[in-house]
Design a protein around this nucleic acid. Structure first.
Lengths: 201, 201
DNA sequence: GCATTTGTTGATCATACGATCAACAAGCGC
DNA sequence: GCGCTTGTTGATCGTATGATCAACAAATGC
């Protein structure tokens, strides 16, 4: 069944399997044997293509988190800042995204032991922050957002997104509640009328 | 060297060792052998007193997190709400508390696989939330805090505390920056003048 | 002081982890 | 079609996990 493949193809196949395992069972479940089983090959083959599991875990997180960042950045490409921010939040809070966002909690916890994963996490946080800062700055320039401390609002937004997602992992908050809290907080912080971030323009 | 002890005493000794390991190396490092080594006994003895490691991990987290909650609640016992809130934040953001707060990231991540740990985490989050809600309600009644959505401010506060602590685990934010952000956000959210939560009254 | 209770040990089992490597076999060049 | 290259297997090593249990020894009761 497991046919012979060109290295590039097999490498991609293993990376995809690692992503699937991470999405389904968390970063802690991305083990040599789990990835091998998901790919349908012997465990030795995964080790052959991926000499260090720590690296594979970090890269898997990086790929998944970066894919989400790229998608959000693309969807919130241009136009008025209000619409861009609305798009960012709508995408991030859409139902069924818990699988990706859950990985952040794993990354923080495992990052303490894995410098590679910690570095990847740091880098991605910086990129997310840059995207938010840019949108907020644009909104202030347009006169659409009213806040004296945009970088603070940016951090607040991610703090709310990240922590409520973490809460959901242990069943503390519902998705609907999480969304409501983030939307309301951001509307307040940016001097927007209630519903400005949720209702269709 | 490891003398014979009455069960209650030994039990307490093992619990203390588990807490020490958790504070030093995280909840994931609370293993049968690590706790046994920390206590200075054979691994079998830990298993004898603690039939399930999953339970021990959950209880260790519960004990440590509850101790912090109790301490904060005691320090912020009574008086004007502003002083109580200031005390809560000062205690939680004091240098050297990273060891306790780091455990929350472990709890969220490991809680996905351990229902026992998830339940303990949920319960403690509820108690923290109740303490904050109570202080905020008192402050509003006093006229010291100005916010239309106290439960939102409460969640914002914990979101900032929790997520910036998680960030610190991967080296993303400094302790000083974290403190500044939390203080400033809360002052803004509650209609307080800048520095109201940090400077001595 | 002897016998019983019971706290304690340390070996052991089954499982899982990352990693290594000799052996195999599929496909390609000639 | 033959042989070499190389993708692939599966066994294996060393370590670590939780859990179990017979054997030991220290304290207690009589």
């Amino acid at each position: 069944m497991p046919s012979r493949r060109p290295p590039a193809e097999r490498r991609a196949e293993i990376a995809a399997a690692a992503r699937a395992v991470a999405l389904r069972e968390g970063l802690g479940a991305v083990t040599l044997r789990a990835v091998a089983a998901e790919t349908g090959v012997a465990s030795g083959l995964v080790a052959h293509y991926e000499p260090s599991m720590e690296t594979l875990v970090a890269r898997t997180f990086d790929e998944l988190a970066r894919a989400e960042l790229d998608e959000v950045a693309r969807l919130a490409g241009d136009g008025p800042a209000l619409g861009r921010l609305r798009s960012v939040l709508a995408t991030l809070l859409a139902p069924g995204r818990d699988d990706v966002s859950s990985l952040w909690a794993d990354a923080w916890s495992l990052g303490r032991r894995s410098p590679t994963l910690a570095a990847a996490t740091r880098s991605l946080m910086g990129e997310w922050s840059a995207l938010a800062d840019e949108i907020l700055a644009a909104g202030i320039a347009e006169g659409a957002f009213a806040t004296a401390t945009p970088e603070l609002v940016s951090l607040q937004m991610f703090a709310l997104l990240d922590s409520t997602t973490a809460y959901a992992l242990v069943g503390y908050r519902e998705a609907s509640e999480r969304s409501a809290v983030v939307f309301t907080s951001m509307e307040t912080a940016l001097g927007l009328p209630a519903g400005a971030l949720t209702e269709p323009q």
